[in-house]
């Protein structure tokens, strides 16, 4: 198991990264309420362990290994929050700080037991997704189809429209999560987009296209 300090660092970098911010020494220092000098000292150690990429003057990013470990901490943190709120009746606005102390002492075995006992929750009490036991987070970053450019190769991540008829119709055309597609054309003046799925080509109105979220591949 990692040291408590390392876990705190990884967790912090993960959160900063997922907010789209570069994790600079100053940001991390603010977050952990310690001096920048000691932050840069610890970041060097993390870089040596190949958990982060340290880019001078730009900040740090997690390596693949670092991200897996960070997600594991996040999972334990969010499980602890659930446990505190659901089982012990701790107020949810207080749960975060309490969980921060608890998360470091939960082993993988205890974590899985906790997960089962809590009824396999999908999110923390605040609605953030819970990473699974392998340290994967379900939520994949995605954007609506309309925000991509012509010729982009994409994969559908989720469809946000809740209308079951539309979902069903799109599914029969093969438009569902995991489907790979290519953006072929965008009509002028915020018009529809044209996509290619396999050998078939479809035009999708702006409303439907913005309900389909995808990522670049």
């Amino acid at each position: 198991m990692l040291s408590r300090t390392k876990e705190d660092y990884l967790e912090t970098i993960f959160h900063l990264e997922s907010e789209g911010l570069a994790a600079t020494t100053q940001d991390i220092a603010n977050h952990l309420k310690i001096t920048p000098a000691s932050v840069s000292e610890n970041l060097k150690k993390l870089a040596r362990d190949k958990l982060i990429n340290h880019l001078p003057y730009k900040g740090v990013t997690l390596t693949k290994k670092g991200k897996t470990l960070a997600l594991d901490v996040v999972r334990r943190h969010r499980l602890s929050e659930r446990f505190l709120v659901d089982k012990l009746g701790v107020k949810w606005e207080e749960a975060h700080d309490e969980a921060h102390k608890l998360e470091h002492s939960i082993s993988k075995v205890v974590g899985n037991k906790l997960y089962e006992m809590l009824g396999e929750p999908k999110t923390c009490p605040h609605g953030n997704p819970l990473p699974d036991a392998d340290g994967r987070i379900k939520e994949v970053p995605s954007q609506p189809l309309t925000s991509f450019n012509k010729h982009d190769h994409l994969q559908i991540i989720k469809i946000t429209d809740e209308e079951p008829k539309l979902l069903c119709y799109l599914a029969t055309l093969g438009l569902m999560p995991k489907t790979k597609l290519q953006l072929e054309e965008k009509a002028p003046f915020d018009g529809p987009i044209m996509i290619k799925v396999g050998q078939a080509t479809y035009a999708l109105g702006k409303k439907i296209a913005s309900a389909i979220w995808a990522r670049k591949i």
Partner: peptide, 8 residues
């Protein structure tokens, strides 16, 4: 409503 149309 929105548009879904096959193009060929």
């Amino acid at each position: 409503s929105g548009l879904v149309m096959e193009m060929f």
